[in-house]
Design a protein around this nucleic acid. Structure first.
Lengths: 215, 215
DNA sequence: CTTTCTAGTTATCGTTTGATAAATATCGCA
DNA sequence: TGCGATATTTATCAAACGATAACTAGAAAG
């Protein structure tokens, strides 16, 4: 008989922190697909290890989930976007196109979208925090920049109606990601075009709305 | 001692089918809040009965969940909306305002929104079916009616770009419900105003987009 | 009042769950 | 090569899970 060589697909042994990071990365994949109620045994199978090993790296399932949240939510926002949105050397339309293309590149990932909604349904704190971030770092800035570009030099706040309209625009773009990654429904391939149209429509409409007072 | 009267809070005994319907109604409340992974014991507690009783009305937990889906999804669409959207005696703008106010009255309910998203994340068939319904009975009709009102008598299909823009509008409105019932974030109180602005913006922009061909 | 039917409860089964302890395998290093 | 440290597995626990069977109560029919 030909000698059967025992193929060991064993990877190089990683340092403790690297292994931990690998576990979190794969836990994100797993929980994004199966939801956070899935069992630690199924998770361990997805990691290719036994279930009790998880408890050497994380004190409890809930602690692991918290780390998943942290990893998914944090470092998603890029500092350069703050400057981009406020860069008055470039026309607002152009800034918004650049921003939304980069932003949706970052968040329109299956894992991020699904974990965002899973955590939203659970009502966890970090989700609410993120909604506040969108409000302040994106929408209010857009409205401020729009007022500036249209010569409104009063430093008034955006009206609730203006803010709502910005949310409708933002939500319309965001819903493209929901349709694609949650509903798994076909969407227009050309994401840039979708963004472009959404922005055209928004910028054309925002002036009319903010200057109109309805009862 | 004053005689302690045994207060029996027992309701009138319902017929089997009525009781069943009551269980489903309360199961919708429960699952909408806690998710479908929650235990039948917690559900029974919410119903004020013991857990095995559930199995007298439903063969299994999964069968109960299916009935919850059916009840929540079905009969949500009103036949009159089909006629409303296609009623060419009224201006499209007015039809859309009436429709979206009624439609959002129907779906912007905490239970519906949450079960819709829970089931969407699980990828159940009925959710995909509903997305198709929105596509055909709302968005494609809106685009057809818009073409008609603007004198485009060719019976061409809507372009993918036009359909996408309709989805962005619809998604923007829908996202108002997500923010309110999933994120539990404050939204503009005046829902009619939100719809009105979203429609103004959409109808102003759709013409420009459909007549523009970008590479 | 007694009988009958069934909505409802109590008791319990086998499985799965999160978690722990003890045993083993494998690496880094002298 | 052999030793100590640590990564990983095997074995196991108590609690919670979906589900079933056997018992009980309470209304309806005679």
């Amino acid at each position: 008989m030909s000698e059967t060589v025992q193929v060991k697909p064993r990877k190089k042994r990683l340092s403790s922190t690297e292994r931990r990071a690998e576990f979190i990365t794969k836990a994100i994949e797993f929980f994004a697909e199966e939801g956070f109620e899935s069992s630690t045994r199924d998770l361990a199978r997805h990691l290719g290890v036994t279930q009790p090993l998880l408890y050497r790296y994380f004190p409890s399932k809930n602690d692991l989930i918290k780390e998943v949240y942290q990893t998914v939510y944090l470092n998603r926002w890029r500092e350069e976007w703050d400057e981009l949105l406020c860069d008055r050397n470039r026309p607002l339309r152009e800034r918004l196109q650049t921003f939304y293309e980069a932003y949706t590149d970052a968040i329109f990932a299956r894992e991020w979208m699904r974990i965002f909604l899973f955590s939203g349904l659970k009502g966890v704190e970090i989700n609410r925090w993120y909604v506040g971030l969108v409000n302040e770092r994106i929408l209010n800035r857009i409205l401020t920049e729009h007022r500036f570009e249209n010569g409104d030099i009063s430093d008034r706040q955006a009206t609730p109606e203006e803010l709502e309209l910005a949310w409708v625009m933002h939500g319309g773009i965001f819903y493209y990601g929901i349709r694609k990654h949650i509903y798994e429904s076909p969407v227009l391939d050309d994401k840039s075009r979708m963004i472009s149209d959404a922005l055209d429509v928004f910028l054309a409409g925002i002036g009319a709305v903010s200057s109109t007072s309805k009862n």
